[in-house]
Design a protein around this nucleic acid. Structure first.
Lengths: 242, 242
DNA sequence: TCAGTAACTGAACAGACGTTCAGAATCAAT
DNA sequence: ATTGATTCTGAACGTCTGTTCAGTTACTGA
């Protein structure tokens, strides 16, 4: 029994497995976003992902784990955008705009149906802590971006922490009213919100809003499809139930 | 059997009844705010209000009705603040600031533990419609305030509707991170958020933030305690259970 | 073709939920 | 003290939930 054929087989099987996992996460993310965590039942999620409810448990340990990976996944994507914005050459307004637009696309665009805004208390303590820590790092990054802009003289802001929270709140709340079939696309909304949110920081607001070109995001939705976090957890990462 | 003694008796009984109703609404509002609608059980609400679970049903038809009155009540308070802001003499920035601060106080201050931000889909259609209509009137009022400021030359904003949603989102999201025991009071947060949110609209942002005095709100939390909407509904306003 | 593994399912389970109800306790007025 | 109404409660009911499991189907590699 050589290892190669086996290896190839399990590879393909594993790829299918990961893909199904992602499908489930997307379906669940949409359900969570639309109906809320508690209101979205496993039977709904299963139906949205075209599986039997019982079959979900071949891919995830339970509902909480699904929520966790949904949030963890979108937090990772946002964090990646934040780090990319940091390395960006340009004004702080441009960097901040990049973060805002990325954040909103991640939340609103259909393919990225995640639900980072749901950070609910329905998770066991250690998972909750892990997510909150990640979100705090992200929020801290946004705050630092604002502070740096203030130090550089480009921004004016008496309380960067509060401004960061205001910006994130305005963005996160958009999932409440955004309608994919509505007149505005996710990108248009993102640009419009960025205009307003950044204007509140600029010292010289006359030069704003202007057509600030910023690097297009390519393959944004898929570039983390095979992240380590998406693989099946081997150890007991979810120990006790609720 | 004269009517006077009876009248007096039932009056007092009725006052107690209304007061208890308000207590329940406050307790439930806090639970809904902290844990979410589905996660907050009737047994939790009852415990928070110091009642037996069964006794809740002497004051409300059920959980959905409690949520409805929570939201309806805080929407009414916000609407009242909006109308008061409209009649205010002063700049549009001052009026808008009044609305923002009132909104945030209504959401965050302990005594007004309501949950307008929860507008969930867990309510029967007609109640949902009623709340959404009221919220739309409120949101429209904020939008008109912005538009009027733009027309007057005081504000600049390419999309007042979007800006209004951004502002409301930033405010509503605050219930997620606000901590009553934290370093900032609800009022301080309200002022800080108002600074930033209004700055994004001003043409001449140099004169901002400045100490803009605005009329103090007095007896804000209690002035609607005996509203008609708080009385027990006599007809079947909640018909079918979900 | 055949064995073995992976993917999947229907039916059920234990627990939590909102809610009800018969009846006890409390209150108010005579 | 008695009466009638109001306020309250413990215990239960039916339903829905997340989850499990024995068993079936589909797929893979030789």
């Amino acid at each position: 029994m050589r290892t190669h054929p086996n290896k190839r087989r399990t590879d393909r099987v594993h790829r299918r497995y990961v893909a199904r996992r992602l499908e489930i996460l997307r379906a669940a993310g949409k359900q969570f976003r639309v109906r809320g965590f508690a209101e979205a039942g496993m039977r709904d999620i299963a139906a949205a992902a075209d599986l039997s409810p019982a079959n979900l448990y071949n891919y995830f340990r339970g509902k909480q784990e699904i929520l966790f990976f949904c949030q963890d996944n979108s937090l990772d994507r946002m964090m990646a955008a934040l780090e990319r914005a940091r390395r960006l050459r340009g004004t702080f307004a441009e960097r901040l705009r990049f973060v805002i637009v990325s954040h909103l696309r991640c939340l609103l665009e259909e393919v990225g149906g995640s639900a980072a805004h749901l950070l609910t208390s329905a998770l066991p303590a250690h998972l909750q802590r892990s997510l909150v820590a990640k979100r705090d790092r992200y929020e801290g990054g946004v705050r630092q971006l604002i502070s740096a802009g203030v130090r550089s003289g480009e921004f004016v802001c008496s309380d960067p922490a509060l401004a960061a929270r205001a910006m994130l709140g305005a963005m996160n709340w958009s999932v409440r009213w955004f309608n994919p079939e509505g007149p505005m696309s996710a990108t248009e909304i993102a640009e419009g919100l960025a205009d307003y949110l950044i204007r509140g920081l600029l010292v010289k607001s006359e030069m704003y809003p202007a057509a600030l070109p910023f690097p297009k995001i390519r393959s944004f939705a898929h570039d983390r499809a095979s992240r380590a976090e998406l693989r099946r957890p081997s150890a007991g990462s979810i120990a006790e139930g609720r």
